[in-house]
Simulated assay, not measured.
Amino acid sequence: MTIVPTRTDIAAAAPAGQGVGPLLRAWRERRRVSQLELALRADSSARHISFVETGRSRPSEEMVLRLAEHLDVPVRERNSLLLAAGYAPHYPETPLDDPALDALREGLERLLQGYEPYPALVVDAVYTVVAANRGITMLLDGVPESLLQPPLNAMRLTLHPEGMAPRIRNLGEWRGHLLAQMERQIALHRSEPLRALYEEVAAYPVPETVDHAEPATPVPYFALPMRIEHDGRVLSFVSSISTFNTPMDVTVSELAIETFLPADPATAKYLNSLGG
């Protein structure tokens, strides 16, 4: 497994060149927070918030960061807010292969390897695969080389009609789950690259051989599983996504670790037999 450095350009929350006021107003409206509520959270006044949004008052660097925190603005866009207010970016954007992130890379590699034989991977803000373990490699059996050329994209690999999609037994449900996940992220981040990816994968034709009948004795899953054919059997997984708490770097803030947990005893038994 190799950590692959990537660069993701995420659009700001509002058109550039309008100053910090309209940007902050756009984020406040997106979060559905009133000026008074934001003022109370940020220990300010509704009058001052109004003056900042209309450009009558220039907020301090500390105020920009405080408002961004209470509006849950992504780290990359916090830098955009600071630039719009005339300040230097506060958060660095360190390439993944930079020596400063050696500890991070080693930690991610140890985590992914330790999760084997279960699948796990790390993706960035537009689902570019940064790292993956052997469990993920197993799920990619049969995927053509044309889709395995770097940079790999988890959404393309999953939903492309020549990728994993034809082998996903409940593709209708799983596809709907993934598209809804992307829609929520677009609503929160207003990312043009992510929207472009969404429009691409949502337009993929859906293979006809989807949503096979459930087994005669249904398994009581505790979360929506991905049921995928592999080597003559059907494996079932539920996924969990983890991010870093309070990231202080743009690159780190946009990483997500997705782990796939066996959703039934048969899947766990099979994977553990491989790991042995």
Rank of each mutant, 00 (worst) to 15 (best):
V210A: 15
M1S: 13
P59G: 06
D249K: 01
E106I: 05
L188R: 13
N245K: 10
D124A: 00
R184H: 12
R25I: 07
P119Y: 01
Y127I: 03
Q35D: 05
P247I: 04
L261V: 15
Q185K: 11
M248V: 09
L24S: 10
N245W: 12
N79M: 11
L188Y: 11
V234S: 11
P218H: 02
G176I: 09
H189Q: 14
D43L: 13
D211F: 10
Y198A: 03
I168E: 09
A268C: 09
L152M: 12
S146K: 15
R28S: 04
M138K: 11
Y221F: 14
E29C: 08
N79P: 14
R31H: 04
R47K: 13
V33T: 12
Y87S: 11
D264S: 09
A42S: 15
P151S: 06
P262E: 03
T243V: 15
F260C: 07
H48S: 12
N272V: 14
I228H: 03
S240A: 14
V252Y: 01
M164R: 02
V75T: 01
V238R: 08
R31M: 04
V250K: 00
M155P: 06
R134Y: 03
Y270N: 09
V238S: 07
R31K: 13
T54A: 08
A84H: 09
E61Y: 10
N272R: 15
R76S: 01
A213S: 13
A11K: 07
R184Q: 13
D98L: 14
R233G: 02
I257P: 03
R190V: 13
R169C: 08
G163R: 01
Y221M: 04
S240V: 15
A213P: 02
E61I: 07
R195F: 00
E258D: 11
E61T: 10
Q149C: 12
A268I: 11
P117K: 12
E145P: 13
E183S: 05
P144Q: 12
P5G: 01
G276L: 13
T158H: 06
L235E: 08
L71R: 00
L255W: 06
G21R: 04
A131C: 04
D211R: 04
L83S: 09
A103E: 14
V201E: 05
M182G: 02
N245Y: 09
S253D: 09
S240T: 14
R28L: 08
D102V: 08
R156Y: 07
T217M: 07
A223Q: 12
L121K: 02
A26Y: 11
A39W: 07
A14G: 14
D231P: 01
Y198E: 03
N245H: 15
